[in-house]
Computed example of a mutant assay.
Amino acid sequence: MLKQRIITGLALLPVALGGVFLLPVQWFAVFVGAIISLGAWEWANLSGFSAQWQRVLYALVTGSALVGFYGMPASFLLGAGLVWWLTALMLAISYPDSTSAWRPRVMRLVIGWLVLIPAWSGLVYLKSKNAPGSEYQGDLLILYVFVLVWGADVGAYFSGRAFGKHKLAPHLSPGKTWEGVLGGILLISLIALGVSWYQEMTLFHTLGLLAVTWVVGFVSVLGDLLESMFKRERGIKDSSQLLPGHGGILDRIDSLTAAVPVFSVFWLLIS
């Protein structure tokens, strides 16, 4: 299983990075939109709609919505995403008491849009920040978010295995610990300091970068917990079996769906 996960991960990495660095913004929006639509196909199952035609219909409606939203100001969708993730934090903290608020299947479908569409909008918005004279600025912003999420995940894995004692959310994800989360935050803090040193940032800007990095790191954990909450309610381990050894699309992008819109809101406010 581990070998399969490594092979699949290595196969996906150049696809993801190629999409970020090689595609113009219009085709990048299509590329990410296809991934989001596959995620929507999986989310329909998490919502309790297991029939194939229902899942395909939800994916098609989601993809059509992305087409309609393209070209709109990013602030609307990113603002909706930010409000949603603040709400999701409350739902995760109060689980399982919060279950009655989101158990209806239609409500879970709406939540799927609040999870997936702002993530697509955030990636397209960051990609559009490729300014003249700085060709890859937007691409590097996306890469930085990816590295933060991967770093938080890797740091949490090793720190949790070595020091994990205090459960983070035993009702949602028994394997996650506070020690693991803090290990992930420590690793991405070192990444942020490395970026600050390379960019020769002032102390003020370094502290700002660290603050954004910490928020994004914690929010990425929330994205993971939220999907765990829905999978637990649905009684399934993986969102699908599309990726051998990795489960489904949502299992790979759950942290990014939270991290991307929150990071994009910060960048929107800064710029």
Rank of each mutant, 00 (worst) to 15 (best):
L46D: 01
L22M: 12
Q241G: 04
I93S: 05
L203E: 08
I188R: 05
L207D: 03
W27Y: 15
A34Y: 03
P118G: 04
P244F: 13
L186V: 15
G71T: 14
L148P: 00
L46M: 12
L66V: 10
I111E: 08
L141S: 05
R161H: 08
I35H: 04
F31G: 03
S134G: 08
K237V: 05
F21W: 12
L38K: 00
V67K: 06
R252F: 05
G208F: 02
T202H: 05
L193S: 04
L250F: 02
T257S: 12
L60C: 15
G245A: 10
W267M: 12
S264T: 04
G122T: 01
P170G: 14
G48T: 13
W43V: 03
A51E: 15
V110T: 13
L10V: 11
L143Y: 05
K167I: 10
S134E: 13
V181K: 02
S239G: 07
L82S: 06
V215I: 15
M107S: 12
K3L: 11
D224F: 07
V195K: 05
F263D: 04
T177M: 11
T99V: 14
F218I: 15
H166M: 11
A80D: 05
P14K: 13
G19V: 06
R55H: 12
P261F: 07
